[in-house]
Simulated scan of single mutants.
Amino acid sequence: MAKAAIPTYDICSLVMGKPTQEEVVIARFPDYLAAHSHIQFPHRHSFYHLALFTSGGGTHTIDFERFPVKAGQLYFMVPGQVHGWYFEGPTEGYVINVSAGFFTGFLKDPDYVERFPFLSGVAAEGVITVNNQAMADIQPLLEGMLQEVNSDRPYNLDMLRVLMLEMFIRVSRSTQAGPVKQEMLHNNLLLRNFRKLVEQHYMQQRLPKDYAAMLYVTPNYLNAFCQHMLGKSAGEVIRDRVLLEAKRLLVNADTPISNIAYQLNFADNSYFTKFFRKYAGVTPEEFRKNIV
Protein backbone atom coordinates (compact mmCIF):
# COMPACT_ATOMS: atom_id res chain seq x y z
CA MET A 1 0.00 0.00 0.00
CA ALA A 2 1.38 3.44 -0.88
CA LYS A 3 2.18 5.73 1.98
CA ALA A 4 0.19 8.95 2.11
CA ALA A 5 1.77 12.36 2.26
CA ILE A 6 2.83 13.47 5.72
CA PRO A 7 -0.28 15.04 7.32
CA THR A 8 0.00 18.52 8.81
CA TYR A 9 -2.02 19.26 11.94
CA ASP A 10 -2.99 22.74 13.03
CA ILE A 11 -3.54 23.54 16.67
CA CYS A 12 -7.33 23.82 16.29
CA SER A 13 -7.54 20.17 15.23
CA LEU A 14 -5.86 19.08 18.48
CA VAL A 15 -7.84 21.18 20.96
CA MET A 16 -8.64 19.35 24.19
CA GLY A 17 -11.69 20.42 26.14
CA LYS A 18 -12.18 24.18 26.04
CA PRO A 19 -12.83 25.81 22.65
CA THR A 20 -10.71 28.78 23.80
CA GLN A 21 -7.62 26.56 23.57
CA GLU A 22 -7.03 27.52 19.96
CA GLU A 23 -3.66 29.16 20.66
CA VAL A 24 -2.33 26.83 23.30
CA VAL A 25 -2.97 23.23 24.39
CA ILE A 26 -1.39 21.87 27.58
CA ALA A 27 -2.08 18.34 28.78
CA ARG A 28 -0.67 15.38 30.64
CA PHE A 29 0.86 12.91 28.21
CA PRO A 30 -1.55 9.97 28.82
CA ASP A 31 -4.57 12.24 28.31
CA TYR A 32 -3.09 13.68 25.12
CA LEU A 33 -2.30 10.24 23.71
CA ALA A 34 -5.78 8.96 24.54
CA ALA A 35 -7.39 11.92 22.78
CA HIS A 36 -5.10 11.81 19.73
CA SER A 37 -4.02 8.19 19.26
CA HIS A 38 -4.09 8.67 15.46
CA ILE A 39 -1.07 11.02 15.43
CA GLN A 40 1.66 8.60 16.51
CA PHE A 41 2.78 8.10 12.89
CA PRO A 42 4.95 10.67 11.06
CA HIS A 43 3.22 14.04 10.85
CA ARG A 44 3.93 17.76 10.90
CA HIS A 45 2.62 20.56 13.08
CA SER A 46 1.85 24.14 12.10
CA PHE A 47 2.66 25.20 15.69
CA TYR A 48 5.38 24.80 18.31
CA HIS A 49 5.25 21.40 19.99
CA LEU A 50 6.96 20.65 23.32
CA ALA A 51 7.00 17.51 25.43
CA LEU A 52 8.59 16.50 28.71
CA PHE A 53 8.83 12.79 29.54
CA THR A 54 8.79 11.92 33.25
CA SER A 55 8.69 8.16 32.57
CA GLY A 56 8.35 5.83 29.63
CA GLY A 57 10.28 4.00 26.93
CA GLY A 58 10.49 3.60 23.18
CA THR A 59 11.62 6.12 20.60
CA HIS A 60 10.48 9.27 18.86
CA THR A 61 11.72 10.75 15.62
CA ILE A 62 12.19 14.38 14.62
CA ASP A 63 13.03 15.02 10.97
CA PHE A 64 14.05 11.36 10.55
CA GLU A 65 16.48 11.42 13.51
CA ARG A 66 15.59 8.87 16.17
CA PHE A 67 15.82 9.59 19.90
CA PRO A 68 15.11 7.32 22.88
CA VAL A 69 12.16 8.12 25.11
CA LYS A 70 13.38 8.41 28.69
CA ALA A 71 12.56 10.18 31.93
CA GLY A 72 13.89 13.71 32.07
CA GLN A 73 13.91 14.22 28.32
CA LEU A 74 12.47 17.48 27.03
CA TYR A 75 12.07 18.14 23.34
CA PHE A 76 11.09 21.22 21.37
CA MET A 77 9.81 21.30 17.80
CA VAL A 78 9.18 24.26 15.53
CA PRO A 79 6.43 24.43 12.89
CA GLY A 80 7.07 22.23 9.86
CA GLN A 81 9.26 19.56 11.44
CA VAL A 82 8.28 15.93 10.86
CA HIS A 83 7.62 13.85 13.96
CA GLY A 84 6.55 10.38 15.02
CA TRP A 85 6.21 8.37 18.27
CA TYR A 86 6.88 4.70 18.98
CA PHE A 87 6.24 4.13 22.68
CA GLU A 88 6.92 0.98 24.70
CA GLY A 89 4.56 0.75 27.65
CA PRO A 90 2.93 3.64 29.54
CA THR A 91 4.41 7.09 29.03
CA GLU A 92 4.03 9.93 31.52
CA GLY A 93 4.81 13.59 31.15
CA TYR A 94 3.43 16.78 29.65
CA VAL A 95 2.62 18.13 26.18
CA ILE A 96 2.43 21.76 25.11
CA ASN A 97 1.17 22.91 21.72
CA VAL A 98 1.44 26.64 21.17
CA SER A 99 0.66 28.68 18.08
CA ALA A 100 3.45 30.54 16.30
CA GLY A 101 1.75 33.84 17.13
CA PHE A 102 1.03 33.14 20.80
CA PHE A 103 3.73 35.55 22.02
CA THR A 104 3.62 38.08 19.16
CA GLY A 105 1.18 40.54 20.69
CA PHE A 106 2.60 40.06 24.17
CA LEU A 107 6.27 40.80 23.50
CA LYS A 108 7.71 43.92 21.94
CA ASP A 109 10.33 41.84 20.14
CA PRO A 110 8.49 39.39 17.83
CA ASP A 111 11.66 37.31 17.39
CA TYR A 112 12.33 36.89 21.12
CA VAL A 113 11.23 33.25 21.34
CA GLU A 114 13.39 32.25 18.37
CA ARG A 115 16.52 33.21 20.31
CA PHE A 116 16.31 30.15 22.54
CA PRO A 117 18.80 27.64 21.11
CA PHE A 118 16.40 24.69 21.46
CA LEU A 119 13.95 26.40 19.05
CA SER A 120 16.42 26.45 16.16
CA GLY A 121 14.50 23.85 14.16
CA VAL A 122 17.48 21.47 14.23
CA ALA A 123 16.34 18.13 15.66
CA ALA A 124 19.42 17.38 17.79
CA GLU A 125 19.42 20.89 19.30
CA GLY A 126 15.79 20.59 20.34
CA VAL A 127 16.19 17.43 22.44
CA ILE A 128 17.48 18.06 25.96
CA THR A 129 18.03 15.82 28.96
CA VAL A 130 16.90 17.81 31.97
CA ASN A 131 18.93 17.43 35.16
CA ASN A 132 17.28 16.98 38.56
CA GLN A 133 17.57 20.63 39.53
CA ALA A 134 16.05 21.83 36.26
CA MET A 135 13.27 19.25 36.59
CA ALA A 136 12.48 20.55 40.07
CA ASP A 137 12.21 24.06 38.59
CA ILE A 138 10.27 23.14 35.46
CA GLN A 139 7.65 20.66 36.68
CA PRO A 140 5.84 23.15 38.98
CA LEU A 141 5.65 25.56 36.03
CA LEU A 142 3.99 22.87 33.93
CA GLU A 143 1.54 22.09 36.72
CA GLY A 144 0.76 25.80 36.92
CA MET A 145 0.12 25.88 33.17
CA LEU A 146 -2.28 22.95 33.46
CA GLN A 147 -4.26 24.88 36.07
CA GLU A 148 -4.33 28.08 34.02
CA VAL A 149 -5.28 26.47 30.71
CA ASN A 150 -8.34 24.89 32.34
CA SER A 151 -9.41 27.97 34.28
CA ASP A 152 -11.59 30.98 33.49
CA ARG A 153 -9.58 33.33 35.67
CA PRO A 154 -8.77 36.79 34.29
CA TYR A 155 -5.51 37.03 32.36
CA ASN A 156 -5.11 33.26 32.24
CA LEU A 157 -3.55 33.38 28.76
CA ASP A 158 -1.09 36.04 29.88
CA MET A 159 -0.21 33.91 32.91
CA LEU A 160 0.38 30.99 30.56
CA ARG A 161 2.74 33.13 28.52
CA VAL A 162 4.65 34.18 31.62
CA LEU A 163 4.95 30.61 32.91
CA MET A 164 6.02 29.33 29.51
CA LEU A 165 8.66 32.02 29.07
CA GLU A 166 9.98 31.29 32.55
CA MET A 167 10.25 27.62 31.57
CA PHE A 168 12.17 28.55 28.39
CA ILE A 169 14.58 30.69 30.39
CA ARG A 170 15.15 28.03 33.05
CA VAL A 171 15.76 25.35 30.41
CA SER A 172 18.14 27.63 28.57
CA ARG A 173 20.04 28.41 31.77
CA SER A 174 20.30 24.71 32.61
CA THR A 175 22.05 24.03 29.29
CA GLN A 176 24.56 26.90 29.50
CA ALA A 177 27.59 26.93 31.75
CA GLY A 178 28.47 30.34 33.16
CA PRO A 179 27.48 33.82 31.93
CA VAL A 180 26.81 34.45 28.24
CA LYS A 181 29.50 36.69 26.77
CA GLN A 182 28.77 39.43 24.25
CA GLU A 183 30.73 37.53 21.60
CA MET A 184 28.47 34.51 22.04
CA LEU A 185 25.36 36.69 21.73
CA HIS A 186 26.72 38.06 18.46
CA ASN A 187 27.58 34.58 17.20
CA ASN A 188 24.16 33.21 18.07
CA LEU A 189 22.51 36.10 16.24
CA LEU A 190 24.59 35.55 13.12
CA LEU A 191 23.92 31.81 13.19
CA ARG A 192 20.20 32.35 13.63
CA ASN A 193 20.12 34.84 10.73
CA PHE A 194 22.06 32.46 8.49
CA ARG A 195 19.70 29.59 9.25
CA LYS A 196 16.67 31.80 8.60
CA LEU A 197 18.07 32.81 5.23
CA VAL A 198 18.78 29.18 4.35
CA GLU A 199 15.21 28.28 5.30
CA GLN A 200 13.89 31.02 3.01
CA HIS A 201 16.16 30.50 0.00
CA TYR A 202 17.56 26.94 -0.05
CA MET A 203 15.39 25.98 -3.04
CA GLN A 204 17.12 28.53 -5.25
CA GLN A 205 20.36 29.56 -3.53
CA ARG A 206 22.84 26.71 -2.95
CA LEU A 207 26.16 28.58 -2.68
CA PRO A 208 27.66 29.99 0.55
CA LYS A 209 28.72 33.15 -1.27
CA ASP A 210 25.07 34.05 -1.86
CA TYR A 211 24.31 33.89 1.86
CA ALA A 212 27.56 35.61 2.78
CA ALA A 213 26.49 38.56 0.63
CA MET A 214 23.10 38.72 2.36
CA LEU A 215 24.83 38.66 5.76
CA TYR A 216 27.48 41.24 4.75
CA VAL A 217 30.39 38.90 5.48
CA THR A 218 32.87 37.13 3.22
CA PRO A 219 32.34 33.51 2.12
CA ASN A 220 35.55 32.50 3.92
CA TYR A 221 34.33 34.12 7.14
CA LEU A 222 30.93 32.40 6.89
CA ASN A 223 32.54 29.01 6.34
CA ALA A 224 34.99 29.48 9.23
CA PHE A 225 32.14 30.72 11.42
CA CYS A 226 29.98 27.66 10.68
CA GLN A 227 32.92 25.35 11.34
CA HIS A 228 33.44 27.05 14.69
CA MET A 229 29.77 27.02 15.72
CA LEU A 230 28.52 23.79 14.15
CA GLY A 231 31.54 21.75 13.13
CA LYS A 232 30.46 21.88 9.49
CA SER A 233 30.85 24.28 6.59
CA ALA A 234 28.20 26.73 5.36
CA GLY A 235 27.82 24.59 2.26
CA GLU A 236 27.02 21.58 4.42
CA VAL A 237 24.33 23.54 6.27
CA ILE A 238 22.68 24.41 2.96
CA ARG A 239 23.08 20.87 1.65
CA ASP A 240 21.59 19.35 4.82
CA ARG A 241 18.49 21.53 4.46
CA VAL A 242 18.00 20.39 0.86
CA LEU A 243 18.47 16.77 1.92
CA LEU A 244 15.96 17.13 4.74
CA GLU A 245 13.32 18.52 2.40
CA ALA A 246 13.99 15.68 -0.03
CA LYS A 247 13.34 13.17 2.76
CA ARG A 248 10.14 14.94 3.73
CA LEU A 249 8.88 14.88 0.15
CA LEU A 250 9.84 11.24 -0.39
CA VAL A 251 7.39 10.14 2.31
CA ASN A 252 4.60 10.68 -0.21
CA ALA A 253 4.90 7.57 -2.39
CA ASP A 254 2.42 9.01 -4.89
CA THR A 255 4.85 11.77 -5.92
CA PRO A 256 7.27 10.62 -8.65
CA ILE A 257 10.91 11.06 -7.74
CA SER A 258 11.42 13.04 -10.94
CA ASN A 259 8.83 15.56 -9.67
CA ILE A 260 10.68 15.86 -6.37
CA ALA A 261 13.93 16.49 -8.23
CA TYR A 262 12.25 19.25 -10.23
CA GLN A 263 10.61 20.74 -7.13
CA LEU A 264 14.00 20.90 -5.40
CA ASN A 265 15.52 22.64 -8.41
CA PHE A 266 17.83 19.83 -9.55
CA ALA A 267 18.78 19.77 -13.22
CA ASP A 268 17.45 16.24 -13.67
CA ASN A 269 16.43 13.10 -11.81
CA SER A 270 19.85 11.50 -12.26
CA TYR A 271 21.64 14.40 -10.56
CA PHE A 272 19.14 14.34 -7.69
CA THR A 273 19.62 10.58 -7.21
CA LYS A 274 23.41 10.96 -7.12
CA PHE A 275 23.12 13.81 -4.61
CA PHE A 276 20.76 11.87 -2.36
CA ARG A 277 22.75 8.63 -2.45
CA LYS A 278 26.01 10.47 -1.71
CA TYR A 279 24.70 12.25 1.39
CA ALA A 280 21.93 9.95 2.65
CA GLY A 281 23.78 6.71 1.94
CA VAL A 282 20.84 5.20 0.04
CA THR A 283 18.97 5.97 -3.16
CA PRO A 284 15.68 7.90 -2.99
CA GLU A 285 13.84 4.67 -3.83
CA GLU A 286 15.56 2.78 -1.00
CA PHE A 287 14.87 5.57 1.46
CA ARG A 288 11.20 5.60 0.49
CA LYS A 289 10.87 1.85 1.00
CA ASN A 290 12.50 1.98 4.43
CA ILE A 291 10.44 4.83 5.91
CA VAL A 292 8.81 3.53 9.08
Rank of each mutant, 00 (worst) to 15 (best):
A71H: 07
G72H: 04
G72S: 08
Y75E: 01
M77R: 04
M77Y: 03
V78D: 02
G80D: 09
G80S: 04
G84W: 07
G84M: 11
W85P: 00
F87M: 13
E88F: 03
P90V: 04
T91Q: 12
E92K: 10
E92H: 09
E92D: 14
G93V: 06
V98D: 04
S99F: 03
F102S: 02
F102N: 04
F103Q: 07
T104Q: 08
F106I: 08
P110F: 05
V113M: 05
E114R: 14
E114I: 02
E114L: 09
F116Y: 15
P117H: 09
P117V: 01
S120V: 04
V122Y: 01
N132Q: 15
Q133M: 10
A134T: 13
P140N: 07
L141S: 10
L142S: 06
E143D: 14
G144M: 06
G144W: 05
M145T: 09
L146H: 08
Q147F: 10
V149Q: 07
N150T: 11
S151D: 11
D152S: 13
R153A: 15
Y155T: 03
Y155G: 01
Y155E: 14
L157M: 15
L157S: 11
D158F: 04
R161E: 02
L165G: 04
L165T: 08
E166N: 15
E166A: 13
E166T: 15
F168M: 09
F168R: 06
I169N: 08
V171R: 02
V171G: 00
V171E: 03
S172T: 07
S174A: 15
T175G: 00
G178D: 04
P179Q: 10
K181H: 11
K181F: 09
Q182P: 01
E183A: 14
M184G: 00
L185A: 13
L185E: 14
H186C: 08
L189Q: 12
L189R: 15
L189K: 12
L191V: 05
R192K: 15
N193I: 08
K196E: 10
